[in-house]
Design a protein around this nucleic acid. Sequence first.
DNA 1: CGTCATTATTGTCTTGGACAAATAGTTGAC
DNA 2: GTCAACTATTTGTCCAAGACAATAATGACG
Lengths: 305, 305
Amino acid sequence: MNTTPGMPIASVERETGLSKDTLRVWERRYGFPTPERDANGERVYASAQVRRLAQIKRLMDRGHRPGKLMTLDEAALLALDEARSTAWASPDDLQLDAWLNLVKTHDSEALQQAFYREMAKRGMARFVQDIVAPLIARVGEAWSRNELGIFEEHLFSQHLEKLFRTTLANMAPQTGHPRVLLTTLSGEEHTLGLLMVEALLVVEDAYPVLLGPQTPIDEIVRAAQIKAVDAVCLSFSTAYSPALAAQGLRDLRQRLPADTQLWAGGYGVKPIRKAIDGVCLVPEFQDLFDCLARWRSEPGGKTVN
Amino acid sequence: MNTTPGMPIASVERETGLSKDTLRVWERRYGFPTPERDANGERVYASAQVRRLAQIKRLMDRGHRPGKLMTLDEAALLALDEARSTAWASPDDLQLDAWLNLVKTHDSEALQQAFYREMAKRGMARFVQDIVAPLIARVGEAWSRNELGIFEEHLFSQHLEKLFRTTLANMAPQTGHPRVLLTTLSGEEHTLGLLMVEALLVVEDAYPVLLGPQTPIDEIVRAAQIKAVDAVCLSFSTAYSPALAAQGLRDLRQRLPADTQLWAGGYGVKPIRKAIDGVCLVPEFQDLFDCLARWRSEPGGKTVN
DNA sequence: CGTCATTATTGTCTTGGACAAATAGTTGAC
DNA sequence: GTCAACTATTTGTCCAAGACAATAATGACG
C-alpha cells in the first residue's frame, strides 16, 4: 500500500528548510501550500506539495522571488530549472552528465574510480572547482527536480567524504601558514564544503584545523585562541537562511580578536548582498585563493584597518 | 559595563538548541529567562542567561525536568553538573583517564598515535568495545559536567572519524555477507556509531553499505531494495528520544520486506524495555555479533544471489 | 512489588497582527 | 544615458495568548 499520509509542519520544515513561520505566512498570503487538517486542526502537507516547496526553495536560492514563483504552474517551474542548466554549458558538461548518471544508477565503483582518475588528471584545485563543486550543484538540482532521491544523494556524499578523507589523511600536514579553523555554525550540518576547503588549503601549504560542523560561536572563539589560528573559515550551504548567516557572522566578528580573519564560503553566502564589516565573503572557491594571497601579502599576518 | 549587548531570539535558538516557542513558553510559565526588549519590542537575551540556558539544556539531556531546574539557583545547578553517574572501575580505567586528559589538553598528535597503537595491539573488535565506546561515553559525561567544551568534543570526534575512515578505506571490502545498510533516522545526526559498526562488520566478513545519517523512512526502504541488503542497521545516541526511536522502528519494520532484518543499536535503545516485533535490539556491540551469528545460522541467510 | 488509571508537566501547534530589512520602481539632476 | 535618492512593495521574522497531545510522575489496587 502506497498511501501518502502527508507530513506535519515540523517535518516539512526539516525537509525543505523553510521555517514554520514562512510556511504559514505563505499559505495566508499566496494561498499555497494548501495543507489538509488532521483531527486536531493541525496542518498535514501532501507529499506532492512538499516536493514543490523544495523546488521553489531551490529556485529562490538562485535569486527568484517567491511572489512570482507561487503564480507559476508545474511546467513553468520545471522550465526555470532547465533554463539555468542549459545556460551554464561548459566543455565539462557532458562529463558531468555522465557522472550524474552514475549517481542515478547507483554505480558506486565506477563513480569512485572516475573520481580518483579525474583528481589525478587535473590536480586537486581544478578537480574541486571544475568537477566536484558543479557536480554537487547538479546533484542538488536533480534532487529538487525529483530525478533522484535522498538515498542517491547520501550515497554520493559518502563517496565524496571517503575520497577527501583518505586523500587528506595521506597528505597529513603538520605545519604551514596561515592556520585556518574550519567549521560551521549551529544549524549547518553539511561537512563536504569544509572537506573541500581543507583539501585546497593543504595543497596551498596552509594548515587547516578541521573542527567539524555546528560549533556555537563562543566555542569557535575559544578554539581560535587555543589553536592559535590566523583565520576562521565558515561554510554555508544553500539550505542555510542568509539572514541567519549574516546575523551569525556579525555575532562572531564581534567576539573574535581583531587580528583573526573571518572568511565565509559556500553557496549559502551568495544571496548576501550587503558586505559585513571585517568579514571576507567567499562565494566561489577562486575567491579563497584571493583571501589566502591577501593574508600572505599582509605584514606578519597582521590586519591593518 | 557589559561588552556583549545581548542576542536576539534566533541566535539563542541557534546557540542552545532550544526552539523559539520553547524559549517564549518558559518565560511565560517559569519566569525565566527574562530578556530585555529592544526599541521594537523584540527580546534581547543577556549572554549570562544564554549560558545558563545552555547549562539547563545539558541537564535536561541527562534526564532532569525543566520545571525543577528553573527553581534552582546557580549553585544548585552547578552541584547537579558535578554529580557523577555511577562509574565502576575496570583495568582500562586509568588508561581511559589518561586519554580523557589528552582530549582536555588538545594534544591531538598524542591522541592520534595512541589510538593507532591501541588498535594494532587489541585488534579492531576489542579496540572498539573496550576503548572507543567507553571513551566516547566518558567524553560525553565530561562534556555534560562542563569539564570540557564543545570544541574539545568536536576535535575528539574528528580524530575518531579520521581514524575509522582511513582504516576502513584500506580494508575496502567488495564482497561478503550479510549485506547491511547503515544509517540513522531523521533527527539523529551522530555518525560515529555507524562507523564503528561498519568497522566491526568488515572484520567479520560482512558487507556494510554506509548511507550516512538522517535518511527518511521511505528512502531507507528504497535503498534496502536497490542495494539488496539482508539487514538494515540503525544507530541511536543518548540524545534521541526512546519513544521516537520505538515509533520509527515500528514504522520502518512495517514498510520493510519481511525477509529484511532490522537491527537497532546505540545507547539510545537501552531504555527501550518492550521488545518490538521483528526488530533486533543491539544495545551493546557484543549483541551485534549475536545478530550476525543468528543471521548466518538461518536457512535463508545462506542463499546467495 | 508490579500494573493500571489519574493527574501534572511540557513542547509544539494554532491565529492574526505588526514591523523592519531587502528589493523593485520612480523621479530628478547632471 | 547614468547614477543617485526617494518611495512603494515584497517578504521573513517576531509577538501574544490559548489549546492540546504526548510524556512523565503519582496514586490506587491486586
